Computed example of a mutant assay.
Amino acid sequence: MSDTVSFGYTDVSPEEKTAKVGEVFRNVASRYDLMNDAMSGGMHRLWKDRFVRRVRPRAGEAILDMAGGTGDIAFRLARSGAQVTVSDINAAMLEVGKERAAKKHVEGLAWSEQNAEALSFADRSFDAYTIAFGIRNVTHRQQALAEAHRVLKRGGRFFCLEFSTTLWPGFKEAYDVYSHRLVPKLGKLLAGDEESYRYLIESIRRFPTMEAFRAEIAAAGFVQAKVEPMLGGLVAIHSGWKI
């Protein structure tokens, strides 16, 4: 295991990354929807709808939504009647999610503070594991994937929604300008926090290519690992099955 890991464009110790990521999400927790709007032009809602359709949640299933603090994915999953556990390493994010659930009158969700790299759940506890816009913030990604595999039942499915790098000529360059130059400025203007938004953009650029991440999922033991790119790969849905 490497002595350093990426935190945006800098390399830091694993312990420092965990602490710094925690600070970022404590800073942005109350403005998380605003952050997603700024980073995606509001399109994250459509991407999340599509993501949940791919998961195909069913009534009575046990689903773990990891890094799901604010509840965006869990609220969509719960409409099916699935039993959803919302987990996040960041307590501030979970508190925002609980407040949002109360306002939306969404009941029946379980909330659990968890580290994706060392889950407290028993082996083969869940029918599906979802993680949306969270895997790139994990300190040791392969450990998190191994834990996802461990807590899934045989026949369970893994789904990940994450930013990647678009391959569309022209659009790629335009989005790079927008994300690097404008999103941090929007963060400063709308949330008073430029540095957290800068990290979030930089973390996307340091994330593996779609194919490289698909290979990581396969290496964790998932079969039929595949990727579905959107907007040429600006964001992608990765998936795999446990047998």
Score class of each variant (00 low, 15 high):
residue 184 P to H: 13
residue 74 A to I: 08
residue 98 K to F: 00
residue 152 L to H: 04
residue 89 I to Q: 04
residue 176 D to C: 06
residue 81 G to P: 02
residue 136 R to F: 06
residue 96 V to G: 05
residue 155 G to F: 11
residue 147 E to Y: 08
residue 99 E to R: 14
residue 152 L to R: 09
residue 125 S to L: 07
residue 192 G to K: 05
residue 173 E to W: 15
residue 87 S to H: 06
residue 149 H to E: 04
residue 136 R to T: 04
residue 170 G to P: 11
residue 141 R to N: 00
residue 98 K to H: 03
residue 121 F to K: 10
residue 145 L to Y: 11
residue 176 D to F: 12
residue 130 T to Q: 07
residue 75 F to P: 10
residue 161 L to N: 08
residue 150 R to N: 10
residue 162 E to L: 03
residue 74 A to V: 13
residue 118 A to F: 02
residue 157 R to N: 04
residue 170 G to D: 07
residue 70 T to G: 02
residue 124 R to K: 12
residue 137 N to T: 03
residue 118 A to R: 14
residue 82 A to H: 06
residue 106 V to D: 08
residue 210 M to S: 04
residue 202 E to H: 08
residue 82 A to L: 06
residue 185 K to D: 03
residue 114 Q to V: 11
residue 149 H to R: 13
residue 102 A to S: 11
residue 186 L to I: 12
residue 155 G to V: 08
residue 150 R to K: 09
residue 86 V to D: 07
residue 77 L to C: 12
residue 186 L to D: 01
residue 137 N to E: 04
residue 100 R to N: 15
residue 129 Y to V: 15
residue 142 Q to E: 15
residue 140 H to T: 04
residue 77 L to N: 07
residue 188 K to H: 14
residue 91 A to H: 10
residue 160 C to S: 03
residue 93 M to K: 05
residue 133 F to N: 00
residue 144 A to Q: 05
residue 195 E to S: 15
residue 159 F to I: 05
residue 163 F to P: 00
residue 194 E to T: 14
residue 129 Y to R: 03
residue 155 G to N: 10
residue 152 L to A: 04
residue 133 F to E: 00
residue 169 P to N: 07
residue 111 W to V: 06
residue 156 G to S: 02
residue 116 A to W: 10
residue 79 R to Q: 14
residue 68 G to W: 09
residue 142 Q to R: 11
residue 114 Q to D: 03
residue 139 T to N: 08
residue 177 V to F: 12
residue 195 E to C: 02
residue 157 R to K: 14
residue 78 A to K: 12
residue 208 P to R: 05
residue 102 A to N: 01
residue 69 G to R: 04
residue 211 E to P: 00
residue 150 R to V: 11
residue 164 S to K: 03
residue 160 C to Q: 01
residue 147 E to Q: 15
residue 156 G to C: 08
residue 110 A to R: 15
residue 120 S to R: 15
residue 124 R to E: 15
residue 179 S to P: 00
residue 116 A to N: 08
residue 141 R to G: 00
residue 131 I to D: 01
residue 200 L to C: 10
residue 68 G to A: 11
residue 182 L to A: 11
residue 155 G to Y: 07
residue 199 Y to P: 03
residue 89 I to R: 11
residue 101 A to I: 09
residue 129 Y to I: 08
residue 84 V to H: 08
residue 211 E to G: 01
residue 65 D to V: 09
residue 199 Y to G: 04
residue 113 E to Y: 01
residue 73 I to M: 07
residue 75 F to N: 10
residue 141 R to V: 15
residue 117 E to T: 11
residue 159 F to T: 03
residue 133 F to M: 01
residue 172 K to C: 14
residue 145 L to F: 07
residue 67 A to G: 00
residue 178 Y to M: 10
residue 205 R to D: 15
residue 146 A to P: 04
residue 121 F to I: 11
residue 111 W to P: 09
residue 93 M to S: 06
residue 196 S to T: 14
residue 84 V to Q: 11
residue 155 G to H: 05
residue 195 E to H: 13
residue 140 H to V: 12
residue 127 D to W: 02
residue 188 K to E: 15
residue 103 K to R: 14
residue 152 L to S: 12
residue 134 G to L: 02
residue 203 S to D: 09
residue 148 A to V: 06
residue 78 A to N: 13
residue 65 D to K: 06
residue 155 G to E: 10
residue 198 R to I: 05
residue 113 E to L: 14
residue 73 I to D: 09
residue 139 T to Q: 06
residue 133 F to A: 00
residue 77 L to G: 05
residue 194 E to W: 12
residue 190 L to C: 09
residue 193 D to F: 05
